[in-house]
Simulated assay, not measured.
Amino acid sequence: MEFSARQKLIIDIVKENEPITGDNIAAKLNLTKPTLRNDLSLLTMTGVLDARPKVGYIYSGQTIEPLLFEKLYTKKVDDIMIPAVFIKQDTSLKEAITDLFMYDVGSLYVVNEGKRLVGLLSRKDLLRSVLTNSEESIPVAVVMSRMPNIVTITPDKTILSAGSKLMQQQIDSLPVVEKGTNDKIIGKITKTRIMNHFIEEGIKVKAHNE
């Protein structure tokens, strides 16, 4: 993989100053940390840098072979996305909890009568609602996260882009929406699905080399 000029400069800065925080890297480049977020995510996900909590970035020196990188990161979300579980806005908390465990998922997607995404209900949302509300019959619309405050992705984006969003937002899944819309949901992509993809490809490469 060929890194950009800025990414190469970041690698040099980390080599010379490790461990170094993202803020200090940004300061040396006279840029803001959000500007570097995608660069740092890519360098971390490819194994070139290692991000250590409360310590900063260090240079790991690992690289990924170009063909393996192609298989792991540049595939489209559409290639590995999985079906989403939908519920209606008037679904009760009790019913939502049942669906969550029945389908063994981390999030439920709330849609309106037109099948458009209006909200998201995660395990954390349900746990919080159960702890604060004794009434399990209240509708999920009362406690769900609402649009437009839900981060989405389109199927034409790369797996690397999806992984970067999941890391930046510190969430477990992204609803995949039809390109050109922000609420016509056609599936989802999760941290677990991406990890499974990496493992599947790694097994293929290992089998090929044996």
Rank of each mutant, 00 (worst) to 15 (best):
L29M: 07
G47L: 13
L108E: 00
K76C: 00
V176Q: 03
G119P: 02
I20F: 10
D78L: 05
D50A: 06
I25M: 13
N30M: 08
Y73E: 01
I199W: 04
I11R: 04
Q169C: 00
L131M: 11
I25K: 00
L68M: 05
Q7G: 05
T152I: 15
I159L: 11
A84L: 02
T132C: 10
S122G: 01
S41R: 01
F3S: 00
K179H: 09
A5L: 11
V105T: 12
A84K: 06
K165W: 03
A84C: 05
K191R: 13
T98A: 08
I25C: 08
I203D: 06
M81G: 05
Q7Y: 09
F3W: 09
K179T: 14
N17D: 04
Q170V: 11
Q89H: 05
E135C: 10
Q169H: 11
S145R: 11
V151C: 09
M144F: 10
T35I: 00
V151S: 07
D156I: 13
T32Y: 01
R37L: 13
G61N: 09
D125G: 07
M167D: 04
N182S: 13
G163C: 06
V14Y: 02
L36G: 10
L108D: 03
A27Y: 07
M81A: 02
L36N: 03
K15D: 00
N112D: 15
M81C: 00
E178F: 12
I203M: 10
P155Q: 05
Y57K: 10
S137L: 12
Y109F: 15
K75C: 02
I10A: 04
A96C: 04
P19H: 11
H197K: 06
E2S: 08
P139L: 13
D172F: 13
P83K: 09
K88M: 07
V118N: 04
A51Y: 14
V111D: 10
P155H: 07
N149L: 04
A207P: 02
L42A: 09
R193L: 09
K179E: 15
